[in-house]
Simulated assay, not measured.
Amino acid sequence: MAEKKLRKGEEVTWSSHGQTVHGEVVEKITEDTRAATRQVRASEDDPQYRVRSDKTGKDAVHKPSALRTPKK
């Protein structure tokens, strides 16, 4: 399955504790690092995305498969 191509600033939604959260992509993570208060395992072949909630302003990190782009 092809990786989703998400860009910085792109609007996305994701599920968190049974709720749909709206926010935007902050950065694509392609190496192991600390982000959103946790250790993130990522690589060029298995990237993750740091996203920021519109409502709370808090960051989260998700795999591309967990992020949805809203239909316009």
Rank of each mutant, 00 (worst) to 15 (best):
A2I: 07
E3L: 11
K4L: 05
K4M: 04
K5P: 02
L6T: 01
L6K: 00
K8W: 00
G9F: 06
E10F: 03
E10G: 07
E11S: 12
V12Y: 02
V12I: 13
T13W: 04
T13A: 08
T13C: 11
W14I: 09
W14S: 03
S15N: 15
S16L: 10
S16Q: 10
S16V: 08
S16T: 06
H17R: 11
G18R: 08
T20F: 08
V21C: 09
H22G: 04
H22I: 11
G23C: 05
E24W: 07
E24A: 14
V25T: 09
V25L: 06
V25S: 00
V25C: 01
V25H: 00
V26S: 08
E27L: 09
K28E: 11
K28W: 10
I29G: 07
T30I: 15
E31H: 14
E31Q: 14
E31V: 14
D32G: 09
D32F: 11
A35S: 14
A35T: 04
A36C: 12
R38Y: 07
R38N: 11
Q39W: 15
V40E: 03
R41T: 12
A42H: 02
A42T: 10
A42I: 02
S43D: 08
D45I: 00
D45W: 11
P47N: 01
P47K: 03
Q48G: 05
Q48C: 07
Y49E: 01
R50D: 03
V51C: 00
S53R: 05
D54C: 04
K55T: 08
G57H: 00
K58L: 10
A60Y: 05
V61A: 03
V61K: 02
K63H: 08
K63S: 02
P64W: 12
P64C: 04
S65H: 11
S65E: 13
A66N: 04
L67H: 08
L67C: 09
T69E: 14
P70S: 13
P70C: 14
P70Q: 14
K71D: 12
K71Q: 14
K72P: 11
